[in-house]
Amino acid sequence: MSGNHGSNPAGWTGTAVAMVGFVIGGIALMLTPVNMTLFWVGVVVALAGLPVFLVMTRMGLGDSPH
């Protein structure tokens, strides 16, 4: 395992995007009545964290290969 495991812009950005998606989805479920459209927007945003991470890693913003 690398010495800076998880301490790179790709990892932090991917995690932040996923967290924002979870927050949006959670807020949507707490509304009365439940806003399913906003919930699914949150799901899409949360899932977008993975491609964001992968693209940023390919751009060289992730851990360097060993």
Rank of each mutant, 00 (worst) to 15 (best):
M1N: 04
S2A: 14
G3D: 10
N4K: 03
N4F: 10
G6A: 03
G6P: 05
S7D: 06
S7E: 10
S7L: 07
N8A: 00
P9R: 06
A10H: 01
W12P: 02
W12Y: 11
W12T: 00
T13R: 12
G14A: 09
T15E: 02
A16P: 00
A16H: 05
A16R: 08
A16K: 08
V17Y: 02
V17R: 06
M19A: 15
V20L: 12
F22I: 15
F22H: 01
V23S: 09
V23E: 13
I24R: 02
I24Q: 00
G25Y: 04
G25P: 03
G25H: 02
G26R: 11
G26I: 10
I27A: 11
I27Q: 07
A28M: 00
L29Y: 04
L29D: 02
L29E: 10
M30P: 05
M30N: 13
L31T: 15
L31E: 14
P33H: 03
P33R: 05
V34E: 09
N35H: 12
N35R: 13
N35M: 11
N35W: 07
T37W: 08
T37G: 15
L38Q: 14
L38D: 09
L38C: 06
F39Q: 01
F39P: 04
F39E: 05
G42R: 01
G42K: 01
G42C: 03
V43I: 07
V43Q: 12
V44L: 15
V44P: 00
V45M: 01
V45P: 00
L47K: 10
G49H: 01
G49C: 04
G49D: 13
L50E: 07
L50P: 00
L50Q: 12
V52M: 06
V52A: 14
V52Y: 03
V52K: 03
F53M: 11
L54F: 11
L54M: 09
V55Q: 01
V55T: 09
V55F: 13
M56Y: 08
M56H: 09
M56V: 06
M56Q: 03
R58K: 13
R58Y: 06
M59C: 03
G60A: 09
G60N: 08
L61D: 08
G62W: 10
P65D: 13
P65E: 12
P65L: 10
H66A: 14
H66V: 10
H66S: 13
